[in-house]
Simulated scan of single mutants.
Amino acid sequence: MSRIVPQFGLGTFRLSDQILIDSIKTALDLGYRAIDTAQIYGNEAEVGQAITESQVNRNDIFLTTKIWTTHYTADQLIPSLKQSLQKLRTDAVDLTLIHWPAPQLGISVEEMMKNLLEAKQLGLTRHIGISNFNIDLTQQAIDAIGREHIATNQIELSPYLQNQKLVDFLNQQNIDVTSYMTLAYGKVLHDPVLQQIAQQHQANSAQIALAWALQLGYSVIPSSTQAAHLLQNLQAQQIQLSAEEMQLIAALERQGREVDPAELAPVWDK
């Protein structure tokens, strides 16, 4: 199965207003062609404005949003996505994800996935997928709608949280892995192993962490508000790490999860 999600994109978590608009327009100028947002980020309108004001045609941009937990039911999901499309100033997004499985809400995976599949069948989104699902819940999603409809599972992944069991399962199922929080809120930037590898490549530790994820076949969506950092992140695609360097980074695993909301998260695979 060929990759659906572009390997490199721009994240927009925690960004808003003119800072976000400028970040997106700069990124698009530099060559980014994928943008990731979500209903709960509260910034879809700015994302839509930035794309409209940019020099890049909407058809050349892979745009992702995520349905928030309050919108999973049949009467909520499609209307909420239509609202997102209005804010994003587009007739359809390229990818729509279930943001968190939120088991405590009492909505079954089967129900939310079938509602999301209906949105795809209506042409509101080209592809659909999941985010923050563990192995068991991913299997439930597959059982509900078929793995051919699940483009990706967007999960927290970094050198400090490598999620190998889940990644192996997704690879077996031919479901793209999208890595968010690849820099672990900046914690990996000061890692001596990454810094040492970076010196060998005349790069910085952020680029090494991103190159590691890219080399493992993951899609990455780092964010930045600074043009220099946006460009450096993009240039991580040119870095080729040796097998030995990849092994050194693999040894950094410490189950260092940064995002784990009790009411939304599943039981994570260890």
Rank of each mutant, 00 (worst) to 15 (best):
M1H: 07
M1T: 09
Q7S: 15
G11M: 02
R14F: 12
L15F: 01
L15A: 04
S16G: 00
Q18H: 07
I19C: 02
D22Q: 09
I24E: 02
L28V: 11
L30V: 10
R33K: 15
A38P: 08
Q39F: 15
Q39N: 14
I40C: 10
G42N: 07
A45Y: 01
V47M: 10
T52Y: 12
T52F: 14
T52M: 14
V56H: 11
N59D: 15
I61R: 05
F62M: 12
L63Q: 04
K66V: 13
W68K: 05
T73E: 15
D75N: 14
I78L: 11
S80C: 13
L81E: 06
Q86P: 01
L88N: 11
R89G: 04
T90S: 10
D91H: 12
T96M: 10
H99M: 12
W100L: 07
P103M: 11
L105D: 13
G106D: 12
I107Q: 15
S108I: 15
E111S: 15
K114S: 14
L117T: 03
A119W: 02
K120S: 08
L124F: 11
R126E: 03
G129D: 04
S131P: 10
S131R: 03
N134L: 00
N134E: 04
I135C: 06
L137E: 00
Q139K: 06
A141D: 05
I142G: 03
D143K: 15
I145E: 05
G146K: 08
G146I: 08
R147L: 06
E148G: 09
I150D: 03
A151R: 01
S158L: 04
L161N: 06
N163V: 06
N163F: 01
F169Q: 07
N171W: 10
I175T: 04
D176Q: 06
D176C: 03
V177E: 02
T178F: 00
A184V: 08
L189V: 09
Q195F: 11
A198W: 03
H201E: 10
Q202V: 13
S205K: 04
Q207C: 06
I208Y: 13
A209Q: 02
L210V: 02
W212D: 04
L216Y: 08
G217K: 13
G217V: 14
S219L: 10
I221V: 13
P222T: 13
T225I: 04
L230H: 05
L230P: 00
L231D: 11
N233H: 14
Q235F: 05
A236C: 08
I239A: 01
L241V: 09
L241H: 00
L241K: 05
S242V: 05
A243D: 09
E244T: 05
Q247I: 08
A250H: 02
E258Y: 01
V259P: 02
A262K: 08
E263C: 06
A265F: 00
D269N: 14
D269I: 03
K270E: 07
